[in-house]
Each structure stands twice: as C-alpha cells, then as structure tokens.
Design a protein around this nucleic acid. Structure first.
Length: 467
RNA sequence: UGCCGCAUAGCUCAGCGGUAGAGCAGCUGACUGUUAAUCAGCGGGUCGUAGGUUCGAAUCCUACUGCGGCAGCCA
C-alpha cells in the first residue's frame, strides 16, 4: 500500500474498461436478489463511487462484513453506469475487508442525524456528507488564504501563542502556569497551587494564551511592510452562541504605508478572492451545501464575489437605523454600540449584502485606533455579512506617539507595559492598518453552516473539551 | 454569564396524572440494477440525574446536569 495510488476523485472520471483498486469507507449497501450496490467514499471528493457486486462475485461471509462504516478495498473494472446518478461505477471482482463496523452499534446511519448528535461523535462525523464537505472547504479556504497573501507579497508571521503581557485587550484570557499541580483525591482530580507569586512561576510573571497577535504583528509590519498572521487564538469568554469559540483560528493582515481606505480595499478583495477560489475548487461540496444546508448559497456567493461591498460610516448607519421604522429591542442613538439586531438589520434586511461600517465613536473602540480630526470618531471598520454578523474587525492604527500615549493613559492602562509598542511610534513610525478575521466565521459564510462548532473538527467552548 | 425552551428505543420524535408508542436504523426473509431502494416479519426503553406532591408520575413541582435559541463579550 502506498499513498501514491488512485483516489476515488480520479476513479470517478476514469475511463470505462480500466482495472482499478478502490479504497474507502462504506456509506451504505443495498441488496437485490441478483446484485448488491455499495456507496464507497474516501473523502477525496464529495461524490461516492457506486460499487456493483453481482451475486456470487464475492462470498457471502465477506459481503456480510461490507456494512455502513466498514473500511474496504474493491478490485474491479470501471464501467459505464446504466443507472442514473453516476456516469461510471465499479464492477467488483474482489473485496478486501480492513476494518469491520458492527451495524448494531455503529452510530452513523443512512438517514440524517442532527448536528447536535453528530457533535457528540465528532471523531466519526467526518465520514458523513456534511462534515467531509466542511473539512474539504475549510482546507481549501486555508490554502486560499495563504495564496491570497503570498501572491501579494505578504509575509506570514508566527506571533506567540503564549503572551506574558496582560495588556492585549479586553478579552478574558486563559492563564498559563506551572504553579498549579493536579492532585488525585477521593473526590477526583483537584488542583493545588504550589505558589501564588507570579515571580516564582515559569515565566517569572503572569502568562496567558494569546487573544490576538495584532500588537506583535505590528512590529513585524514596520520592517517587512506587508505581513499577516494565521494561527490559533484563545478567548476565555463564557460565550454561548453559534458564532463564538474558546479556541479559534484568526487571520490578521497588517500593512505599512496604508490607511483605513487601503484596509477596507484589502478586506473586500480578500473575502471576494476566497469566495471565488472556493466556487472554482469545491463545486461538489458547495452543490451539497446549496441543496441541503443553505438554499441559494451558490447564488449569494457568486453575487458577492462579483459586486462591491457597501461602505457606510457609523453615523450614516445610525441614521438608517433611526429612519428604519423598525422596533429594536435596544434603542438607537449616536454613541451607542451597534447591537447584533442592528447589524443584522443593516446587512440582511436593508443593504442585503456585505457592508463595511467605518468611523465609530472613539469611546466604543480600542485605544490603538487612529483618532479622526473630528475628535469624536476613530478609523475603525467592521465588515458585516448576512447570517454571520461581524466577520472582520479592523482599523488604521494610531501612529502618533503623543496621541497614543494620551489614549493609553485615558484608558487607565499601564504605559510602561507598552514600551515596545510605543517604540514603534518613536522610531520610524508610519501610517499602518490591518484587521482581524475569524477563520471559522469565514468557513461558516462559505458553507452556510449555522453553528461555528460544526466548522472545526473538535470545538473548544465553555464546558466542552471532549476529544 | 442572563433570559427562554428542550431532555422518552441506536437516531428523529409523539404521548402530558391511570400497564411505554411511531417512523427510520438494526436483525431475518422476499425481490434481476438500486441510488434516502421497496415489501413482510422480529428484537429493542431504570422516559437525563436527585428529591418532592399524589392511591398512582414519562406526565405536576424544585434543584442539578447536558443541549439548543436569543442577548452580552467579540473574530
């Protein structure tokens, strides 16, 4: 056996008359008196290979082991299929059983199971239609992300996963420590603190899992010009929504000699470019999502790939919301943060396509965002898309030393902790901008999947770390 | 974390105070090519956990656990 062999993806377009081997897992088997049909899949493509087994071709004992979930190899001949639903099929001559799957206990079945149930068997769900398709799209999207940036001269930067500064932002963080030991007791595992002094801990100071690589990547930006991160990110927020994870993958481009307009252009070009890539390279998977998960998905994606995003300022957005005549749970007024219901109305009901909102009030955005001349707003931008809400959050960064120092103080943050971040403004400061994009949210957008826990192989969220 | 809802067969659900049900899956058989195959038969349940009310609880009440929806936090 060797990885260099023909996969089902290629067999499905193979020439009738060819003798082939087909490895994979059995989806279903259907028996008639004179013939059995097996749907075989190896994950290389959405479409199953239909294997035809005329009665007597293989012995009954082996045929009985060809059940849903079992792993097998069929030797046979590719033939034109007389049935509808496939152009070629495999006329089996012999079978090799690698792993049986007891039909009485194997949890996956032909008919659809709920996503909630499949989450409990996340180690097996990738063998089903939906999760195989999700993982192929996820893979292709990751590849497309790198291609997009590499093609434009961006350098991939590996920012630290462990950070020893607790000044990254408002997000709750996971502590990283060796000062805590598990102790086995009659009640089960308990933790014992070996020291409560961070000075005695591994890093000599409090350490956490990163909530964002942005501050770090800005340093690399001011030297390499165009950079991006693509890696795991952690938030200890006790969020319980279909669009939050405790561990997720974030993409953060950062560009020197670039302002908020350039930032918006990149964000828009990025999203549209990834969509185009997926539309071209994941056709069978998208067809499935379009049919079974989100009706009209392909049409929506095609439309988004070909049309400009709407761009409005926060002030204009507030105006639209005020004049909408909608009764919102949270009243709208200038200065308030846009609630989910407001964002959804804007992008789903009113504008009906991806929308970039810019120039938010300073009070509701992070300290490092560039202050506008009006003294009230900052050069922030959020990209809102139907069904997902906020897909991207970004800004032009504050590059003026005095303004940045004043804002750090105004936010009651410790100036000395930001010494290296301020150095960037002290030495060779330039206008620069970037954004953060949640990779899983992008995959949700591409697939039509409704819950972020279903677009990552093993999700991590509050109370959930199985597998 | 707050509010609301749900928890019954392997899965999806019905039953809502009086002896536990269906469809699908599984098993057995039938059927000359099916593709969510079809048809017939069979097996399958401490009704999430712990208390409480009642002659009697899957059903009513309380707590806990898990899951989902919405909200907050954000990507």
């Amino acid at each position: 056996m060797d990885y260099r062999r023909t996969y089902l993806k290629d067999l499905l377009t193979g020439k009738p008359g060819t003798l082939v081997e087909a490895y994979g897992w059995v989806k279903t088997r259907r028996d008639s008196k004179g013939v059995s049909f097996v749907q075989l899949n190896d994950g290389s493509i959405f479409t199953d290979l239909q294997v035809v087994i005329p009665a007597g071709t293989i012995n009954d004992d082996d045929l009985k082991k060809v059940t849903t979930g079992s792993s097998v190899k069929f030797d046979g001949e590719l033939v034109e299929s007389p049935g509808s639903g496939q152009s070629v099929e495999l006329l089996a001559k012999a079978v090799t059983i690698y792993g049986e799957a007891d039909p009485a206990t194997y949890p996956l079945q032909k008919k659809g199971a709920s996503f909630e149930f499949l989450r409990e068997i996340a180690h097996l769900r990738v063998r089903g239609n939906t999760f195989g398709a999700v993982m192929r799209v996820r893979n292709r999207a990751a590849y497309a992300v790198h291609s997009f940036f590499q093609d434009r001269g961006f350098n991939w930067i590996h920012t630290p996963v462990i950070t020893a500064s607790d000044c990254e932002g408002a997000g709750a963080m996971f502590a990283v420590t060796t000062s805590m030991e598990p102790v086995e007791t009659a009640e089960g595992t308990r933790f014992k603190l070996t020291s409560d002094d961070p000075a005695e801990d591994f890093f000599g100071k409090p350490a956490y899992l990163t909530v964002s690589g942005q501050l770090n990547v800005e340093t690399q930006c001011l030297g390499l010009t165009n950079v991006y991160t693509f890696g795991p990110t952690f938030r200890a927020e006790n969020s319980n929504t279909p669009r939050h994870l405790a561990e997720f993958w974030m993409i953060e481009p950062e560009m020197a000699f670039c302002d908020i307009t350039g930032d918006m252009n990149l964000a828009e070009e990025f999203v549209r470019s990834i969509i185009k890539d997926i539309l071209t390279h994941c056709e069978p998977d998208l067809a499935f999502f379009d049919q079974r998960i989100e009706k009209g998905l392909i049409e929506t994606l095609t439309h988004v790939a070909d049309s400009d995003f709407e761009r409005v300022t926060y002030t204009e957005a507030i105006d639209m919301l005020t004049k909408s005549g909608e009764s919102f749970e949270f009243p709208v007024s200038w200065g308030c943060d846009l609630q989910s219901e407001h964002e959804r109305w804007l992008t789903e009901k009113h504008i009906k396509r991806p929308t970039i909102v810019t120039d938010y009030p300073q009070e509701i955005k992070a300290f490092y965002m560039y202050a506008n001349e009006d003294g009230k707003t900052v050069r922030a931008m959020d990209v809102l898309v139907p069904r997902i809400g906020e897909l991207i959050g970004g800004s032009q960064r504050e590059d003026r030393l005095d303004v940045l120092e004043a804002k750090i103080k105004a936010n009651d943050l410790p100036l000395e902790a930001y010494w290296w971040y301020l150095d960037l403004r002290r030495y060779g400061s330039v206008p620069h901008a970037g954004f953060g994009l949640g990779f899983e949210r992008l995959v949700m957008y591409l697939t039509g999947m409704k819950n972020i826990r279903d677009v990552i192989p093993f999700h991590r969220s509050s109370g959930q770390a199985e597998f």
